[in-house]
């Protein structure tokens, strides 16, 4: 029987793969952005699964800190990408 860390870690790897595939295959910028974010969640899941040692033991805080950093970096990049997209679409009208 797989433990939770293994289960969620594998899920993370599969999500990262699904995200990577969609990021390459999709052509629309918003869809690509969604894909990259899903990929990020996948990688973060691997890290957090690694930090999990069961319900009765304290988790490893280092991956938790890394993922917090990763989430902020991801949202910053997403915001910049969406602003670029809007600026691009606006330049259409001019």
């Amino acid at each position: 029987m797989p433990d939770a860390a293994t289960l969620y870690g594998l899920l993370g790897i599969v999500l990262a793969g699904l995200g990577a595939h969609a990021a390459i295959v999709q052509r629309d910028s918003i869809r690509r952005l969604l894909a990259i974010n899903v990929m990020g969640v996948g990688v973060f899941l691997v890290l957090i699964a690694t930090a999990y040692f069961g319900p009765n033991q304290d988790p490893d805080p280092i991956p938790h800190a890394l993922v917090l950093t990763g989430i902020v970096v991801a949202v910053a990049a997403t915001a910049l990408a969406l602003a670029l997209l809007r600026a691009f679409e606006r330049s259409d009208d001019e």
């Binding site: 939770a4 969620y8 957090i48 699964a49 930090a51 988790p59 938790h64 993922v67």
Partner: peptide
């Protein structure tokens, strides 16, 4: 939350 990462 399930993986005991409430901060995240």
């Amino acid at each position: 939350a399930r993986l005991r990462a409430p901060d995240i």
